[in-house]
């Protein structure tokens, strides 16, 4: 029993496979983490630079924010793994409803 994964009750877990998987995932997380810091710096620079107009900066930062949310969800909160179909469905549905609401407010009320 000593060679089994300590946090899994399943004796059929292949320890070698798990270790490889974990290492790979760790690599992804480190890369993503570095990229998120990089994107944050880019956002700060974009906001601080005098040469860009607000019409460029606001959508640009919003796009960076969306990318960061996707990184967060898929690499740190494990939505890329199996068994997350239902949460993903509801997450996207909620995002869609929120998006439509904002679009409608922007176009119908305030435009």
């Amino acid at each position: 029993m000593a060679n089994q994964q300590p946090n899994s009750g399943n004796p059929r877990v292949d320890i070698e496979y798990r270790r490889k998987k974990s290492a790979e995932e760790m690599k992804h997380q480190v890369i993503t983490f570095a990229m998120m810091i990089f994107l944050t710096i880019v956002a700060f620079v974009a906001a601080g630079y005098e040469g860009f107009s607000a019409w460029f900066i606001v959508p640009f930062i919003l796009i960076l924010a969306v990318v960061q949310v996707i990184f967060q969800l898929y690499y740190f909160m494990h939505m890329s793994h199996k068994g997350h179909e239902a949460p993903a469905l509801f997450l996207y549905s909620g995002a869609l409803v929120g998006f439509i609401t904002i679009i409608a407010f922007l176009t119908v009320i305030w435009w």
Partner: peptide
């Protein structure tokens, strides 16, 4: 803006 309520209410 008074219309905001109508939108929220009907959403």
């Amino acid at each position: 803006n008074t219309i905001i309520w109508e939108h929220f209410f009907w959403i």
